[in-house]
Computed example of a mutant assay.
Amino acid sequence: MPGMSDYTGAVTVGGGADVRELTHLTITKVAVDPEMSNNAYLLRCRHTGDQLLVDAAAEPDTLREVVGDGGLATIVTTHQHWDHHRALADLAGETGAEVAAGEPDADAVSEQTGVQVTRRLNHGDTVAVGDCTLEVIALAGHTPGSVALLYDDTASGGHPHLFTGDSLFPGGVGGTFGDAAAFAQLIDEVEHKVFDRLPDDTWFYPGHGADSTLGAERGDLPAWRERGY
Rank of each mutant, 00 (worst) to 15 (best):
E111I: 07
S37R: 15
E226Y: 09
Y229F: 13
N39L: 05
V115N: 06
D83K: 14
M4E: 15
L25G: 08
V19Q: 07
L168N: 05
R44K: 14
S146W: 00
D125Y: 02
M4L: 14
T113I: 06
S110N: 09
L52N: 00
G145H: 00
W203V: 15
E98L: 10
L42G: 06
H192F: 11
T48G: 09
E103K: 08
A97Q: 11
M4T: 14
E189I: 01
Y7F: 15
A181R: 14
V129C: 11
A87V: 12
P34R: 15
I137W: 02
E35M: 14
L42P: 05
G207M: 09
T213I: 10
H79K: 08
L72V: 09
L52W: 05
V109A: 05
I75P: 05
L91I: 10
T77G: 03
A57P: 05
G145T: 00
G228K: 02
G215F: 02
G114P: 08
I187K: 04
G3P: 04
R86N: 11
S212W: 07
T143D: 02
D69M: 07
G172I: 01
P60C: 06
F183E: 03
L72S: 01
F183V: 04
P170V: 08
N122H: 11
R44S: 15
P34C: 09
A87S: 14
A148T: 04
D125V: 06
G165M: 06
V147L: 03
Y151V: 04
D152V: 06
Y7Q: 03
L198V: 07
M4W: 12
G16F: 13
D50L: 11
W82C: 05
V136F: 02
G165N: 06
L139P: 03
A223V: 10
L22E: 09
R227M: 12
E35N: 13
T26Q: 14
E191L: 09
E103S: 10
A182I: 11
E226N: 12
A148P: 07
T118N: 07
M1I: 11
S146C: 12
A87T: 08
T164Q: 02
A40L: 09
D18R: 15
Y41S: 06
A73Y: 02
D188T: 15
D125W: 00
G14F: 12
A138L: 02
D152H: 09
A223S: 12
G175H: 11
R86Q: 14
L198F: 03
H81T: 09
V11D: 01
V129E: 02
E35Q: 15
D83G: 06
K193E: 13
T77R: 04
T23R: 14
D61Q: 15
A108I: 04
V136M: 03
